[in-house]
């Protein structure tokens, strides 16, 4: 048996994606985890990470957002537990509710030969492809990245690029309670957001959307290897409540 000589193709560095399929993640925990991943990726730029999760109900406001896009007054917001949080990402106001899939790819743009604008185009391409698989035709608005269907936004996009590594990303309304969006003008849109479940004739499950997003991101950005995790290192430091030991 002879060894095959290494070809140029086999010597090409492999791109590895670590995908974190998490459940509901508090926003503070997400920010800490993102910071850690950005630090790791900026050190080894051939690696990348993807967080797929959802958040407890709350509002985030990006650099293009305004408090005036949120209808309830501060007292109402406090009563609902929706205190708005200003975050250093692009995009406007976003209401996070259960039934969404938050998709945060973290990759080094220089390693992928992308500019910030090209990365946003790719991200919108992923969203359009996802919607197409559910039989929905999405439209892109170049002035306000994100995807609309029949004039209503379905995918919110808001990205931050630090040390040329991307963070935050997009939020897809898979099957949330749409009534809540009447109170918040997400990304400044006059029409409330819509969802995949509302627009598609297919059965929409949050886990299915999450899985397809993982596959689409991996294929679009050319990752050869994907490792999937269902927990994240930050979770290890959370206090765990154990039942009290029985003392006779």
């Amino acid at each position: 048996m002879t060894d095959t000589p290494p070809t140029a193709e086999s010597q090409k560095p492999t791109r590895a994606l670590s995908a974190y399929l998490l459940g509901t993640v508090a926003f503070d925990a997400l920010l800490a985890f993102q910071r850690r991943l950005i630090y790791d990726i900026s050190g080894d730029r051939t690696t990348a990470a993807l967080i797929l999760c959802d958040h407890p109900t709350g509002i985030t406001i990006g650099r293009e957002g305004s408090r005036s896009h949120i209808r309830p007054n501060p007292e109402d917001l406090n009563a609902r537990g929706w205190s708005p949080r200003w975050v250093s990402r692009g995009g406007g106001v976003m209401l996070h509710v259960p039934g969404q899939v938050a998709c945060y790819p973290m990759l080094a743009l220089d390693a992928h030969g992308l500019t910030a604008g090209a990365y946003l185009d790719q991200l919108q391409g992923v969203a359009i492809e996802l919607l197409r698989e559910f039989g929905v035709t999405g439209e892109i608005d170049p002035d306000h990245p994100g995807v609309r269907v029949n004039g209503r936004r379905l995918v919110h996009i808001g990205v931050a690029i630090r040390d040329n590594v991307t963070c935050f990303g997009m939020v897809v309304n898979a099957d949330p309670d749409l009534e809540l969006f009447r109170d918040v003008r997400c990304d400044g849109a006059t029409q409330p957001m819509t969802s995949l479940a509302r627009e598609s004739s297919h059965r929409v499950r949050v886990t299915g959307v999450r899985q397809r997003l993982l596959e689409l991101i991996a294929s679009r950005f050319g990752f050869d290897r994907t490792s999937v995790f269902h927990t994240h290192p930050g979770a290890l430091h959370q206090r765990v409540r154990h039942a009290a030991a029985h003392r006779p």
Binding site: G62, R63, E64, S88, R89, G90, G91, A116, G117, Y119, L120, P142, D143, H144, P145, G146, I157, G158, V159, A160, I161, R162, D163
Partner: peptide, 29 residues
């Protein structure tokens, strides 16, 4: 242009993020 992270006269080290710019949908340090 979005904002400065440092003020005039501040000491900075190569690689520090010192300003943020904005394109539609993304911030860039």
């Amino acid at each position: 242009f979005s904002l400065w992270y440092v003020r005039r006269g501040d000491c900075i080290v190569e690689g520090d993020r010192i300003a943020e710019v904005l394109i539609p949908g993304a911030t860039f340090d």
